[in-house]
Amino acid sequence: MIAYILRRLGMILLTLLAASIIIFSVTQLLPGDVAQVILGQFATPEAVANLRAELGLDRPIVVQYFDWLIRFIQGDWGTSMVSRMEVRPMVMARLRNSLMLASVAILMYVPLGILLGVISAIKEDGMADQLISGISMAFAGLPEFVTGLLLIGLLAVSFDFLPANSSIEPDTPFREAFQYLILPAITVSLTSLGYISRMTRSSTIDVLRSDYTRAADMKGLPRWQVLTKHVLRNSLLPTVTVVALGIGWLIGGLIVTESVFGYPGIGRLLVYSIQRRDVISIQAISMVIVTIYSFSNLIADILYGILNPRIRLGG
């Protein structure tokens, strides 16, 4: 098991290395010169040249990349070109907010998605299934800015039920922030909910049709016991991986949703940095997001390995 984890870890580190190359080179495509951007249009050529040397921009690109990567790993993420502040504390504060939002959302859509998926599967092709499948497919297809704004219109503006704007202070404690999290979390959830429920539905249907489920039925076990002991134990196994893969989706959703609600998370910071062409921040934020995504997949793989006797015990 440990060897398996180490091997997965090795793969992920390699992937992250390659992803960092992509992120670094893409952000280097930025037209114009970072030093020029920082100093503004009216800086003297000498001042620009000095800053270039100071920032190490006159070195070969490969050297710059490794320098950047090593600094990033060491925790030196540089200084924002716009706000002139240390990038790391800023990103970390925003990351905390995003994780808060993501956690609330995951706690909403994962159990609900699984529940709906299982109901759908049990009532395969019945009314309940068609309804759940149809609605969840519709929500899965709707961009977050559409659902988010509709929710604001419906719940916040019409009924004055929840705050429409979530632009709280970045360091608000969870207890106080909670009410501002609800609408954004619902928005993010709706998209992922459909995904989880569809995947759960299809894996549960596969298991329901399996010989061993029939065999369990023929054993005369109560139906709920067949479902919990025999069906769900197997059909929810792939859901572990599905949830992790859905994190990539969730991240995209967060970026949009945070912009819709003005919520001070890492996604909004990214949008802001891209608008301001703040390369240093963009690089750091992208790396943080990619790292989190990769590690959530690692955790899912490990969980899957622990839960699946075929992997745990070998073939």
């Binding site: 992937t15 992803a19 995209g252 997001i289």
Partner: peptide, 24 residues
Amino acid sequence: MRLMDVLLSIPPLLLAMIILGTVG
């Protein structure tokens, strides 16, 4: 396939944003 894995390790919207943010 490893190359594809690398591309998949970056959430699509993020990659789209940083590319379009730089090339316009």
